[in-house]
């Protein structure tokens, strides 16, 4: 296990000059902020942190501020929803709706993705429109069918709360409430949401866990038929693929092509992680499938025959053949990826 960000009791000092400081040096005020960096570990077998974690290292007050903002309904224009309204801890920071639901019950385009292991991901969201996590918080804040607010509107509300002013100062060297502080602190909080202590982890770390017979068989099937896309300890290779799932009828949807403008990326989506998958139903980019069983049945029956269908499916007659027993085993295995500590139950 690698240790990063060793505890440094960094004392950061900021010298604030009063406006009339030019007249007299006695007006200089010294304010010190003590804000230690948090210790984050790369779990066994995980890839290294992404670059942004190094340039926006989680700190004690940065994370505390981010967590408070994440749960604050002030981020929405009518103060009705927070990030946590859709990113619910017991659902691995996703929810149970087919598509995201914003203020006034407005329905979004896609299924809410879980917020987990973001510190290790190289690319975010279903279509990979974000690579730097700090660029993400603004999107739901301003999107019409999400929070429908604006960053100045949010900052205006926060400025009325002395607790926030204090927390921003502690987190960011007395800089006060800034847009960057909002983006950075939310990202810092999200970097600490690491799920790596499921039964599966305990088995492979030989930390006291053992698979049942069904789970062990499911792990075998997984390695035979799933692992080429759901690879690594993140259980996704973070690639974009069109796997012939039923199409979202919304005219805005084009999958990865919405970002790249390339025909070959039409309806390609990022391979989702399977961690905590038992707690994030429904499944698919717009919640096409109610259950894991339904997803497996669909693969078994055959997917849509589309031009840019993933080669692995094309080579296998557009399907992943699975017996009913194998489906049971796979589901049992996927349930071992649930991290009860992470989801808080």
């Amino acid at each position: 296990m690698k240790l990063l960000f060793p505890m440094k009791n960094l004392i950061r000092s900021l010298i604030l000059f009063a406006l009339f400081s030019a007249c007299s040096s006695e007006d200089t005020v010294l304010v010190s902020y003590e804000n230690p960096e948090l210790e984050l570990n790369v779990p066994f077998g995980f890839p290294d942190f992404n670059n942004s974690v190094y340039t926006n290292k989680p700190t004690k007050y940065g994370v505390a501020l981010g967590e408070k903002l994440f749960h604050d309904t002030k981020l929405s224009t009518d103060n009705s929803i927070s990030c946590a309204s859709c990113h619910i801890q017991e659902n691995a920071f996703a929810d149970h709706n087919a598509k995201g639901i914003g203020i006034e019950g407005r329905i979004g385009l896609r299924n809410t993705p879980p917020v987990q292991n973001m510190a290790f991901m190289k690319v975010f969201n279903w279509d990979g429109n974000i690579r730097v996590l700090e660029n993400q918080p603004l999107v739901p804040i301003i999107t019409h069918f999400e929070m429908d607010s604006s960053i100045l509107e949010v900052m205006g509300k926060l400025e009325e709360d002395p607790e926030y002013i204090e927390l921003f100062n502690k987190a960011f060297n007395g800089e006060g409430i800034t847009a960057d502080g909002i983006y950075k602190s939310i990202a810092q909080f999200e970097y600490t949401l690491i799920s790596a202590n499921s039964k599966y982890d305990q088995v492979i770390r030989e930390a006291g866990g053992t698979f049942t017979e069904t789970e062990a068989l499911g792990y075998q099937v997984f390695q035979d038929k799933c692992i080429s896309c759901h690879s690594s300890e993140l259980f996704t290779d973070q690639s974009f693929r069109n796997i012939g799932f039923p199409l979202n009828p919304d005219h805005e949807e084009a999958g990865r092509a919405r970002v790249t403008g390339l025909a070959e990326d039409f309806m390609r989506f990022r391979v989702p992680s399977l961690r905590n998958i038992a707690h994030t139903a429904p499944y698919g980019s717009f919640g096409q499938f109610e259950t894991l069983r339904a997803v497996l049945d669909y693969f078994d029956n055959g997917v849509l025959d589309v031009e840019n269908l993933d080669p692995i499916l094309k080579e296998n007659n557009n399907r992943i053949p699975l017996s009913e027993a194998e489906k049971d085993q796979l589901i049992a295995f996927m349930q071992t990826l649930s991290d009860s500590e992470f989801i808080g139950k």
């Binding site: 670059n51 429109n129 690579r131 730097v132 970002v259 403008g261």
Partner: peptide, 17 residues
Amino acid sequence: STVEGTVDDESSYIPGF
């Protein structure tokens, strides 16, 4: 435009239009 980040920096670059 969906371009974001720097071309030379894979960790930030969004290959958009």
